[in-house]
Amino acid sequence: MPRAAVIVNPTKVPDLELHRTEVTAELAKHGWAEPLWLETTVEDGGHGLARRAVDEQVDLVFACGGDGTVRAVIHGLVGSGVPVAVLSVGTGNLLAQNLALGTSLAEGIATGVTGRTRVVDLGVIDGEMFAVMAGIGLDAAMLESTTEKSKSRFGALAYVAGALSRLRDRPIRVTLRLDDGPPFTRRARMVLVGNVGRVQGGLQLFPAAEPDDGRLDVLVLAPYGLRDWLGVAVRLLTRSPREDRRIERFTARTIRMDTTRPMPRQYDGDLIESGVTTRIMVAPKALLIRVPADAAR
């Protein structure tokens, strides 16, 4: 009888015992054994637990938490040959949204045990892996200003409030080098590097992004005032392909960003130490993930 591990962030689940009962029951419906149940802690956000699950020779690992939990579990599974599935809880779940992994518990379990395995890329920022996006500037500053309490109370709207509170931050002077190309400098509000395209609210920042194309997508946003911000918002909402000094998009396998002052940085919703130099690269075909059987290839 096949067996899964469930790695859950207990802070993201209102009734942990009920959740465990429901997960076990759903797995039993599909003929799977009682799962190995592992809860994240401050000391181990999922990486070490994923390695433990691999050592226990499970057939599948479910990551149950926000984007940070999913990222940590994924990092622990890289190179193991064990696929991951995602049970959506928390305020982010951007990987689940981008790959249409389902939003209900029943959908998530069914995708894990009856779906197909897709091989996808990951990004690496200063040695840490991410599945969705990493960036410097406004998006990281937004996370700095968004508390766990506000996320719990307002959900995705908490991020909007966090972003609005940082709109007056000074722009970044950043020099970028993509692959082996020549360096170029921009005065931007943020630079995002994405493995997939969609963020909170279904907004498509990278309409052409594919998580298995061996490349990362780069977005440079440089609005200077209210009119510029409105123009950027309209173009992003309408998925306009037009680019100018306010919006530029690139693709690359390696990205280096150098700023004139330490900038806040994030990957998959987790903050990392501010810095002046950020190196990002793609890790091709690094992850096995379960997606719906009828999902587009």
Rank of each mutant, 00 (worst) to 15 (best):
G79A: 12
R153H: 14
R242L: 07
V132M: 06
V78I: 15
T40P: 05
M281Y: 09
T185P: 01
G45D: 06
A141H: 08
D294T: 10
G123C: 10
F154E: 15
Y267A: 13
E128K: 14
G90E: 00
P211G: 11
A106L: 00
K151F: 14
D244C: 07
V42W: 00
C64L: 10
R253H: 11
A5Y: 10
E17H: 10
E148Y: 11
G194L: 06
D180Q: 14
G123E: 05
T251N: 07
G201N: 08
R189K: 14
L178T: 01
V191D: 03
A286R: 13
T69I: 07
I125E: 11
G112L: 00
T111S: 02
R173G: 01
E128H: 14
V220C: 01
R187D: 09
L164Q: 10
R265F: 06
E128N: 09
D179I: 02
R118C: 06
R51A: 13
A141L: 11
A28K: 12
L138E: 05
T277Q: 12
Y159R: 13
A106Y: 02
I136C: 08
D121H: 08
V86T: 08
G108H: 03
Q97M: 12
V196C: 13
D67S: 11
L143M: 15
L36N: 04
D268G: 05
V193K: 04
V113Y: 04
P284D: 07
M1D: 06
R227W: 07
V174Q: 01
R239Y: 00
A53Y: 03
V174C: 12
I255D: 02
A28Q: 12
E243H: 04
S80A: 09
G90M: 04
S274L: 00
A28Y: 02
D55H: 14
E148D: 11
R20H: 08
P83A: 10
M133R: 03
D55E: 15
L138H: 10
V120L: 15
G46H: 08
G155D: 05
L230S: 04
A110T: 13
M281P: 00
R242F: 11
L216Q: 02
E22F: 00
A163F: 10
V174F: 07
V86Q: 06
P207Y: 04
D268I: 04
A72F: 00
P262V: 05
L203D: 03
G45H: 05
V58F: 05
V132H: 15
R239T: 08
E243Q: 15
R290W: 03
A161N: 10
L176K: 02
D67F: 04
T278N: 05
Y267G: 09
D59T: 06
T238S: 13
V234L: 11
P284R: 13
I289H: 06
P83H: 06
A296F: 03
V132E: 02
V42E: 13
N93M: 01
R173M: 08
A50W: 07
E26C: 03
M190K: 00
R189Y: 07
D228S: 09
G275K: 08
L95M: 14
Y267H: 15
A5W: 10
V199P: 02
V82W: 09
I172M: 15
Y224G: 11
